[in-house]
Computed example of a mutant assay.
Amino acid sequence: MDTYKTVSQSQTTLTELMIPSYANFGGKIHGGIIMGLMDKVAYVCAAKHAGAYCVTASVEGIDFLAPVEVGEMVSLMASVNYVGKTSLVVGIRVISENVKTQEVKHTNTSYFTMVAMSDGHTPFKVPGLILRNDVEIRRFYQGLHRKQLKKYYQQEESRVKSDFERDETFELLKGERCRIER
Rank of each mutant, 00 (worst) to 15 (best):
M73Y: 11
K40R: 07
G61F: 08
A47V: 04
T169R: 03
Y43S: 09
A52P: 03
Q9E: 06
C54M: 04
S8Q: 06
E103R: 12
T109K: 08
V99D: 02
H30S: 08
E171K: 13
Y141I: 09
E171S: 15
Q148P: 04
A66S: 14
K28V: 13
G91R: 09
R93W: 00
V80G: 11
F170R: 09
A116G: 09
G128W: 05
M35E: 00
K151M: 04
M117L: 15
F25D: 00
V68Y: 04
K5W: 00
A116P: 02
E165Q: 09
L65V: 09
T122S: 10
T12Q: 04
V68K: 02
G31Q: 08
D163C: 02
Y152C: 12
K125H: 05
G84N: 07
S21A: 12
T15S: 14
Q155G: 14
G84T: 08
F25G: 00
V68I: 14
R182T: 07
S118W: 07
E156Q: 13
F112T: 10
C54K: 01
E181F: 14
G36M: 00
M117C: 08
G27W: 09
K174I: 00
T109C: 08
G143P: 06
V135G: 05
R166C: 07
V135N: 14
D2T: 09
D134H: 06
D163A: 09
L17I: 11
M117F: 09
F25K: 02
K85P: 05
Q154A: 11
V160N: 04
T86M: 06
D63G: 10
L131H: 12
N81H: 14
F25Q: 10
G71Y: 05
D167W: 04
K5T: 02
Q154K: 14
E165I: 08
G143E: 03
K28N: 15
E136L: 09
I33E: 00
Y22S: 00
T56K: 11
G32C: 05
Y82A: 05
S79M: 15
K161I: 11
I137V: 13
M117G: 05
D63R: 14
T6D: 11
M114Q: 15
V80D: 08
M77Y: 09
E69Q: 10
A52G: 01
C45I: 12
T13P: 00
K174D: 01
Q155H: 08
Q102D: 13
Y53I: 06
A46L: 04
G120P: 00
C178Y: 07
D2K: 07
Y43F: 15
V70D: 02
G27L: 02
K161H: 05
G32T: 09
N98V: 13
L131T: 09
Q11L: 02
S162M: 04
R159P: 02
H145N: 14
K125S: 07
Y152H: 15
D63E: 14
K174F: 06
G27T: 06
S162V: 06
D63M: 09
K151V: 13
I130D: 13
L173K: 06
C178E: 01
V44H: 03
I180R: 12
T169F: 15
L131Q: 11
C178G: 06
L149T: 01
